[in-house]
Amino acid sequence: MMRLYLFAEGQTEQTFADTLIKPYLAQREVFMHYPRLIAHARKKGKVHRGGGRNYAPMRNDILRSLNEDSNRDVFFTTMIDLYAIHPDFPGLAEAESLRQNPIERVEFLEQRFAEDINDYRFIPYIQLHEYEAYLFADPTCFEYLDASRTKEIEALQAIANQYETPELINDGQQTSLSKRIIAQFPDYEKAKPVFGTQLAERIGLQVIRSRCPHFNAWLSRLESLNNYRNNSAETV
């Protein structure tokens, strides 16, 4: 049996991880604690969490948790966005040359993140480019919000069809995944933590994995943590 702590960027990731990932991993004897929002600031001794845009508080939050639970049967991971990633994130300037290859870019940043934390129990995951990539795995899920809005759903499907994977949909300020959804379904913006998970549930974890290879690689690593712990411990 392995234990897992997950640091989520926002409430949407927090709810998604608790609702879909946690029970899935439990079936594989990987037991996730309730996902916690990652720190974005620390003022007067109080940690402020969620939607962080500063790297130092995130880093300190992770390091503090690693120190608080130093057991070898526990791992730590993240769900943070590549979109609008923190300017002081390790390796960000170096990764600029990889901008035309988002998968290589995000893998490079994850590697630098892991190196900076420097603990084999830490498994960084950065979403390409943000949570809504999972919803573009099957845009027909938006029938749940309003089945009569076929033109809006078709517009989202047309966007998804342009890309090999929704993880490659670009991350411009006006063309990010969430902005594209809000343009068709404005109500999504006000209730993202609720709708985001409900829509993902309609799609299903296996479909999301089949359409989002970077997400799938991360989840595959988590579900194999029992083997990973043994292999990693041998190299420490």
Results as ranks from 00 to 15, higher is better:
residue 3 R to A: 03
residue 4 L to E: 06
residue 6 L to R: 05
residue 8 A to D: 00
residue 9 E to P: 03
residue 12 T to K: 01
residue 17 A to P: 07
residue 19 T to H: 03
residue 20 L to T: 11
residue 20 L to V: 06
residue 24 Y to H: 14
residue 26 A to H: 07
residue 30 V to D: 00
residue 30 V to S: 00
residue 31 F to Y: 12
residue 34 Y to K: 14
residue 35 P to N: 00
residue 40 H to E: 09
residue 41 A to C: 05
residue 42 R to P: 00
residue 44 K to N: 14
residue 45 G to K: 04
residue 47 V to F: 07
residue 49 R to A: 12
residue 49 R to W: 09
residue 50 G to E: 09
residue 53 R to C: 11
residue 54 N to D: 05
residue 57 P to D: 01
residue 58 M to D: 03
residue 63 L to G: 01
residue 68 E to Y: 14
residue 75 F to N: 08
residue 75 F to L: 03
residue 76 F to E: 04
residue 80 I to M: 01
residue 81 D to Y: 13
residue 82 L to Q: 08
residue 82 L to I: 05
residue 83 Y to W: 13
residue 85 I to Q: 13
residue 87 P to W: 12
residue 88 D to Y: 06
residue 90 P to T: 10
residue 95 A to S: 13
residue 95 A to M: 01
residue 98 L to E: 11
residue 99 R to P: 01
residue 100 Q to R: 12
residue 102 P to A: 08
residue 107 E to F: 05
residue 110 E to F: 00
residue 110 E to P: 00
residue 122 F to E: 10
residue 123 I to Q: 09
residue 123 I to M: 04
residue 124 P to Y: 07
residue 133 A to I: 03
residue 134 Y to G: 02
residue 135 L to Q: 09
residue 141 C to R: 02
residue 144 Y to V: 06
residue 145 L to C: 05
residue 147 A to S: 03
residue 151 K to F: 06
residue 153 I to F: 12
residue 157 Q to K: 15
residue 160 A to P: 05
residue 162 Q to T: 15
residue 164 E to N: 15
residue 166 P to W: 11
residue 167 E to M: 11
residue 168 L to A: 11
residue 172 G to L: 10
residue 174 Q to E: 15
residue 176 S to N: 14
residue 178 S to D: 04
residue 183 A to I: 03
residue 184 Q to R: 08
residue 186 P to Q: 11
residue 187 D to F: 00
residue 187 D to M: 10
residue 188 Y to V: 00
residue 192 K to H: 13
residue 192 K to C: 04
residue 193 P to V: 06
residue 195 F to M: 10
residue 195 F to R: 07
residue 196 G to M: 06
residue 196 G to Y: 07
residue 197 T to G: 07
residue 201 E to K: 03
residue 206 Q to T: 12
residue 206 Q to M: 13
residue 207 V to S: 13
residue 208 I to K: 02
residue 211 R to W: 12
residue 214 H to Q: 13
residue 215 F to Q: 01
residue 216 N to Y: 01
residue 220 S to C: 14
residue 222 L to M: 11
residue 223 E to H: 05
residue 227 N to I: 09
residue 227 N to C: 10
residue 228 Y to A: 07
residue 229 R to W: 04
residue 233 A to C: 00
